[in-house]
Structures are given as structure tokens and as C-alpha cells.
Design a protein around this nucleic acid. Structure first.
Length: 641
RNA sequence: GCCGCAGUAACUCAGGGGUAGAGUAACUCAUUGGUAAUGAGUAAGCCGGCAGUUCGAAUCUGCCCUGUGGCACCA
């Protein structure tokens, strides 16, 4: 008689079964249809192949294809099928790795001639073929020697490297589908047919072997895969939606800014864009004033020696712009505002009574970002930070950090960002200062985080070169994450640059400096807002709030009267008196995302009313002239008023 | 920086070894109209830059610049 084991189902039911029975056999004991639909099992909370024997008491859930957790298997299987398709179509191509990722999968190939998008339809077609072949995924355990010999003979050098690097105690598993096989940890579904049809190859890209830029570059093919074709379509339309929101496209349509060849990574702000930019600065300035900051401004260029003292030259000179004039000096264009802030702090004797000392600066910094990193407003070489440096004692770190966290979250809320994540980064490899100082700084920041009670995740080795940091990541209206604010504890720079204050005991002490930026880069934040609001900026941020469009030229005078009335109320209004039909005007101003369009014709001018149409709506509402000004003037106020 | 793709009128894009194309915008004229495109006409381009191949290059080749999708980077 065979040995029995006890398994527990998700609903709590238990069952005695023969030891060694596979998930599939178990499923078929329950029902034939279940066995047919099952693709994998979850054994003690880990997804496993359904054909593997169950050898001890365990909790077991049988996964069907429509299970949410199966999606990862579909994607991973899809990656294998793609690799098979590629090797069938392009012999001599080496396979490397191909994981499931968010929304899909990729596979990295090594091939002399890289793939281009025009290859994708062919590969996709072959994949459908392989899926139709209904090849079973068969798991085999191989010895290391056998695996190395096999892949070496096939010329799969990358796989050989992977196997060589596997820990010796790790089982080497191979997954076969038809005549093709791959080194793989698994798990996989039962056969290729279960992948279905809801996948699409999306793009090709270069990617370094093992993510290291000193290694060869491979060709990566990205695909997206879903359980159903409906989900695939949804995903594709989401991508379309994101493209519609692209701030580079909207920025052009809304006449906010442009870039040009002569200034890569630097923004030309047009009048409307600059108005928006200034609205953000005014908002932030007011919030900071109320929080006790004093605003400063420091030189854009300073002698190289200052940057040597601060440590920037040593760590980041590759990323710094430098310039010279007739004298022999080399000036660096500032990549950060902190040394300037320290120099201001150093003027005059400071006492412990002056601390915390909060210096803010809307400083424009220049960094030579790698060319491939540039991306619209999101990643530029010249940008404005809403920067501030808080000089304080070690004892004040916790309290001051807590205040900064509260301020950031409250500010993000004003823009509709309620979902904010915090990341904690500690000492990087490339850094200044003793480990003892780092211990202290990291402990203080941690303590501050405990004090706020906010949740955070840990990001080892990602700190600034002078101190540990917090990063604030906000989620936009379509679920994308953007890193914006930062708070850094710095026990190094003030000392390096010779900042001191007189302590309670009459002795000179070195202050702690907290670096913090809330929007981060104003340029980038503007880009995020454009995408977050899909160009439909809230009234208070809109550079042009109201367009008054006439229906016939008889009402020009009345339109100007309305405009003047609005402008007196502090509302940004313009008139459109052109000899065009009202439908034409409405269309044009709607396309350029003007939040309020007022149409005035004979009726309005006689009755002293206005017909108001808000962006995103096709309805119109008639207001008395007095009423519209009062209703709008409250809405155009920024959250700080 | 690396790999791929792209650069043609102000904008969006088609074309492609033999006089450069469309739609929109602009300008002119007519039209004064009721909530997402009134009609007609006019003008507009060193086809990103530099070399090469060719009788001839916007088109083919090479290099460079810029953008773009990724990778790497992001104090």
C-alpha cells in the first residue's frame, strides 16, 4: 500500500492522497474538466509545474489559465516560444535570458546583425505556429557537465556562462518544448497551446549582457502577453492613452516650450509655458515662506577650487560643464546649489540660536547628462530646482526631516497626488566621509522616518555621495510612478566647506545640512503635470484661463468689455475676434486646451450675459456677467490663496 | 555613452537615382455665422550637416549632429 500525504486546499478542505501524485492527477481526481483547464499548481504558496509529484503534506491550489497568478507563466512561456521562433527563423542566433516582466516579457538574443521592427511580424507568425503545434513543456534535471556540454556544442556561449555561474548546489533544469529546449528554472504551463493568442511583439532594443555597460550589447525583443485578447486590447489602448498625454506632444500643441539642436537638453520656454512655470514657483515660494524658509540666490559659475573642496570635482567632474574667460581660471557651472548655500551660511557668525536655518533657492543647475538619457522635460541638462538647505544640529535632524515630509505630502496633495511612496537610500560605493559619520547620518534619518510613521522601502547603496537620502515617488492619474522630491542628510559638506556655528557651550561646531527639493526639477515637474492632467491644467495653473470668442463682429465691443472685466478680477483672458465661425473657434481653442471658452453673440450682448463652455464638456451654461466673474475668480485662485 | 529607428514647407506626414507632394496653418478675397473644421485663391522647402559614388543624389554609401525606443547612467 502506498504512503499517504495530506494536502490542504485554499478553502481549507483537506484530502489524503498517495504520495508522489502529480498536480494534474490530483486535478483529474476532482474533475475531468478541471484537469483540462489546469495549467499549474501553487504548492505551499509557490507556483510549480503541474506535472511535478507532490511528495509531502502541503497546501495546494490548482491554477487555471484565467487565474491572475497564471499571467506570469503565460508571459514566461511566451518568451520561450519567441526564442524558439527566433532560432527557427534565424539560425546562429544565441539565446541568453528571457524573463516575464510587467505587462509582458522579453528575450535577449546575441546575433551579429541586430533585429529590426520589420522582423517582428515574421517572428510573431512563427510563434503562433509553435503555439498551434501544442508542444508540451517537459522539465528535465541535468547534471552540470551534461548541460555545459550540450550548450557548448550548440555554440550557446551565454548559456554556458550562466550555468558556470550557478551555485553548485542548485539543480540545473531544462525545459523542452518539441525539439527546442532552454536552460530555465521554470515553472511552465503544460503546453504551448495554453499561451493563447493574446500577445504581441512590441519593440526591439539594445540591452547589455547582464545589465553591465562594459559587456556586449545584445538585441532585446519586447512583447506583451495577456490571458485574453480583451486584456491585450485594453493594454494597447492604455499605451495609446499615454501617448496622447505625452508632454512633448502637448507642449507643442499648447505652445508651452520647444527644444532645438543648438541646445540639447535645454528648454526654450514660450510665454505660456513660462507663465505655468512661474505659477509653480510662486506657489512653492509661498508655501516655503510660510514654512519659515528664506530665499537666496547663488552664482551660476564658481571657481573649480570650490568644487574640489566640496568633493564634486572628484566625484562628478565628468558630468559638469566648465568654462573659462580671459583669466586662467576654470569655472564650473553649478551642477548643484549646495556649496553656494554653505557659503551664504558661512557669512557672519552663526549661533546655535540661529538653527535651524532654512535657506531656499530656485537655482538653475547644469549637468552633462548622457545623450541617451535626454527625454523632453523629464530629463534635461539644464533645470531649475526648488532647492533648500536646512542647517541644523544633529538633535534637530529628526524634527526637521519630519517637517519636510509633512510639507512634501501636503504640497503633492494640492496637485492631486495622493499616492506617494518613500524610498530610503543608504551609503553608495562612491562617497565622501568616514563610515562613523555615515552610521550617524543613516541612523538619524531612520529615526526621523520612524517619527513620521510613514511607510518606506529600502534602497541599499543608492544614497548621495555625501549622505543618505529619502526619495518621494508619486503616482499620476494613469498609474505611472515619478520620482520627484528628495531629502538628504549631509554630515560631510558643511565640514568640508568650513561651515561652523557657536554652540551653547561657546565652542565652534559643524552644522548638519539637510538638502531637500520638493518638486525636484521644476522642468520635470511641469512635464509630469502636463501628462497627469493630460493637458487639462486646473484653472489656477492654466497660462490662459478664458478665451472669449465672438460669434459676429457686431459683438466685438461687448467681448472686449467682458475681457476687461475678467482681467480686472485677475483672470487671464483673451479675445478671439477673428472672422471665423464659432464652431471653428471652439474647435481650435478646445484643441489648445483652454479651460474656459466664452461665446458672445447678439443675445449675450443684449442681455449682458455670457455663454460658458468648459474644457472636456460640450455643454454650455449661461451666466450673468457679474456671476461668471465671481464664480471664476474663486476657481482661479491657487491653493495657497 | 551603447544598440536600433528617424530627420522632407510653420505643423502632421507621404514619396524616393532624372524640375519636390498632400492636409492643416499663414497670406489675399468673398462670407457675419449660435458651440469641435465656410468657400475660393496665393505664396511657401539647400529633403539635418559634411564628404563620397554617379552624367545626375533629397533618394545609394560613410562620418557627424539632433531627436526617438530601449540599455547603461541619474549627486
Amino acid at each position: 500500500m502506498s504512503e499517504k500525504i495530506t494536502i490542504t486546499f485554499p478553502d481549507g478542505n483537506k484530502k489524503e492522497i498517495d504520495k508522489g501524485i502529480s498536480g494534474l492527477e490530483l486535478a483529474s481526481q476532482i474533475s475531468k474538466s478541471l484537469a483540462k483547464e489546469s495549467v499549474a499548481i501553487k504548492l505551499n504558496n509557490q507556483i510549480k509545474d503541474i506535472c511535478l509529484p507532490i511528495n509531502s503534506d502541503a497546501s495546494v491550489a490548482i491554477l487555471k489559465r484565467d487565474n491572475e497568478e497564471t499571467l506570469e507563466l503565460i508571459r514566461h512561456d511566451c518568451a520561450h516560444v519567441m526564442a524558439e521562433a527566433v532560432q527557427e527563423l534565424y539560425p546562429g542566433t544565441q539565446v541568453t535570458i528571457g524573463p516575464a516582466i510587467e505587462n509582458g516579457f522579453y528575450y535577449d538574443f546575441a546575433r551579429n546583425e541586430p533585429f529590426t521592427i520589420s522582423d517582428l511580424p515574421k517572428i510573431e507568425k512563427k510563434m503562433h505556429e509553435i503555439i498551434q503545434r501544442n508542444e508540451s513543456f517537459i522539465r528535465e534535471v541535468w547534471s552540470k557537465d551534461k548541460a555545459i556540454k550540450y550548450f557548448k556544442d550548440k555554440g550557446e556561449n551565454y548559456k554556458v556562462e550562466l550555468i558556470n555561474d550557478l551555485p553548485s548546489n542548485e539543480e540545473i533544469t531544462i525545459y523542452k518544448q518539441g525539439n527546442w529546449l532552454d536552460l530555465c528554472r521554470g515553472p511552465h504551463m503544460v503546453s504551448t497551446k495554453q499561451i493563447g493568442k493574446a500577445f504581441k511583439l512590441m519593440k526591439v532594443a539594445g540591452a547589455y549582457w547582464r545589465g553591465d555597460s562594459s559587456n556586449t550589447m545584445l538585441t532585446r525583443i519586447y512583447g506583451t502577453a495577456w490571458a485574453t485578447e480583451k486584456e491585450l486590447e485594453q493594454h494597447l489602448s492604455q499605451i495609446e492613452e499615454a501617448e496622447k498625454r505625452d508632454h512633448r506632444k502637448l507642449g507643442k500643441e499648447m505652445d508651452l516650450f520647444h527644444f532645438q539642436e543648438e541646445a540639447p537638453g535645454a528648454v526654450f520656454w514660450h510665454p505660456k509655458g513660462w507663465t505655468l512655470f512661474q505659477s509653480l514657483i510662486n506657489y512653492m515660494r509661498s508655501r516655503q515662506d510660510k514654512a519659515g524658509y528664506v530665499e537666496t540666490n547663488t552664482p551660476d559659475m564658481m571657481d573649480k577650487s570650490l568644487w574640489e573642496t566640496s568633493g564634486h570635482w572628484d566625484k562628478f567632474s565628468d558630468m559638469m560643464f566648465r568654462t573659462e574667460a580671459k583669466d586662467d581660471k576654470i569655472y564650473a557651472i553649478k551642477p548643484m546649489n549646495c556649496p553656494g548655500a554653505v557659503e551664504i551660511f558661512k557669512q557672519g557668525l552663526k549661533s546655535y540660536r540661529d538653527l535651524p536655518f532654512l535657506l531656499s533657492e530656485f537655482g538653475k543647475v547644469h549637468r552633462y547628462e548622457p545623450s541617451g538619457a535626454l527625454h523632453g522635460l523629464m530629463r534635461v541638462r539644464a533645470f531649475t530646482q526648488d532647492d533648500a538647505h536646512i542647517f541644523c544640529t544633529e538633535d534637530q535632524i529628526t524634527e526637521e526631516s519630519k517637517i519636510v515630509c509633512d510639507l512634501i505630502l501636503s504640497i503633492y496633495k494640492d496637485f492631486g497626488f495622493e499616492n506617494v511612496k518613500i524610498k530610503f537610500s543608504d551609503r553608495p560605493e562612491k562617497r565622501v566621509g568616514d563610515d562613523a559619520v555615515w552610521d550617524k547620518a543613516e541612523a538619524a534619518l531612520k529615526q526621523a522616518m520612524e517619527a513620521t510613521g510613514l511607510e518606506y522601502t529600502f534602497n541599499p547603496g543608492e544614497g548621495a555621495f555625501y549622505g543618505p537620502k529619502l526619495e518621494f515617488v508619486l503616482r499620476d492619474a494613469i498609474g505611472r510612478d515619478w520620482q520627484c522630491g528628495t531629502l538628504q542628510v549631509d554630515l560631510n559638506l558643511p565640514g568640508r566647506l568650513g561651515a561652523t556655528y557657536i554652540g551653547e557651550d561657546g565652542n565652534k561646531k559643524t552644522p548638519v545640512m539637510l538638502h531637500r527639493a520638493l518638486f525636484g526639477s521644476l522642468e520635470r515637474f511641469t512635464g509630469i503635470l502636463i501628462e497627469h492632467y493630460a493637458g487639462h491644467l486646473p484653472l489656477w495653473l492654466s497660462p490662459l484661463q478664458v478665451m472669449i470668442a465672438t460669434i459676429t463682429s457686431d459683438t466685438n465691443d461687448y467681448a472686449l468689455l467682458v475681457k476687461n472685466k475678467l482681467i480686472k478680477e485677475g483672470i487671464k483672458a483673451e479675445v478671439d475676434l477673428r472672422n471665423e465661425k464659432i464652431g471653428y473657434k471652439i474647435r481650435e481653442h478646445s484643441n489648445s486646451k483652454i479651460p474656459v471658452i466664452i461665446a458672445v453673440g447678439k443675445k449675450e450682448s443684449q442681455e449682458k450675459t455670457v455663454s460658458v463652455r468648459r474644457i472636456g464638456s460640450t455643454k454650455t451654461k449661461t451666466f450673468k456677467l457679474d456671476e461668471i466673474t465671481t464664480s471664476l475668480s474663486s476657481e482661479v485662485k491657487s491653493p495657497i490663496e
